[in-house]
């Protein structure tokens, strides 16, 4: 295994970590979004709360969630390492900066990512941490006794316009981050093909729009349907 550490510290090794963790987190976003849609069910939160209970108590899911936390931290840490290294590799900055056909997102991944990370801290502090501390109200359904009523907490939060705005803005950042990140991950992995790469790029665009719009639409609907 003496090849592993140098490999992971090489420029391409670091890129590999970024792309694999990034793609895993993309998958996580899909699952998360699917769960979130249960907030829109008009069943008083039963589906959402039982889903939440399942996600926090199934041993396999729990294991996966630890991986997710780890990958988020790794992705962030690695991204920052790359950012600072790249800045020093440039040395002096140009007086005249020219975007040269690059996208806003591609040039600002570190910034977008940092904002998303801060968003995550606030987001988890607001919901997940409160649930973990057991200060949420309890609710019972058939087959579920006294489980956390996250639904009520979430809908209460989305009654406030500024929280909705915060979430919508956060999803804007996420959208841009994904716009570049999704297809970039495939390029970093070397998965490039004249026939399939355009397809991946298009999927990336659709993905970033669907994910960010999907997450953003929920608080908006909740706010206006109160």
């Amino acid at each position: 295994m003496n090849w592993m550490v140098p490999f992971l510290k090489s420029s391409l090794g670091r890129k590999l970590i970024m792309s694999l963790t990034g793609l895993f987190l993309c998958l996580f976003l899909v699952v998360h979004l699917a769960g979130n849609f249960q907030l829109l069910k008009s069943d008083g939160g039963e589906a959402f709360n039982t889903y939440t209970y399942f996600m926090t108590h199934n041993p396999l899911i729990k294991l996966i969630s630890y991986f997710t936390y780890f990958f988020i931290l790794l992705h962030t840490f690695q991204g920052l390492v790359l950012y600072f290294h790249n800045r020093s590799a440039r040395g002096a900055a140009y007086l005249d900066k020219h975007p040269s056909k690059t996208t806003f997102a591609s040039r600002n991944m570190a910034l977008l990512g940092s904002v998303i990370f801060l968003f995550l801290i606030v987001h988890m502090g607001d919901f997940w941490f409160k649930m973990k501390r057991g200060i949420l109200a309890k609710v019972s359904y058939e087959g579920y006794d006294q489980i956390d009523d996250l639904y009520t907490r979430v809908t209460a939060a989305f009654d406030q316009w500024w929280i909705v705005l915060f979430y919508v803005a956060g999803m804007g950042f996420l959208g841009f981050h994904l716009q570049h990140g999704f297809q970039s991950a495939f390029q970093s992995l070397g998965l490039n093909h004249p026939k399939y790469t355009p397809w991946i790029k298009n999927t990336g665009i659709v993905f970033c729009i669907l994910i960010s719009a999907g997450f953003a639409i929920i608080p908006i609907i909740q706010y206006f349907s109160k």
Partner: peptide
């Protein structure tokens, strides 16, 4: 000491 690629594709453009 070159930087790491972040797939901006500015290289190709220029």
């Amino acid at each position: 000491g070159f930087g790491k690629c972040s797939n901006t594709y500015a290289c190709e453009a220029e």
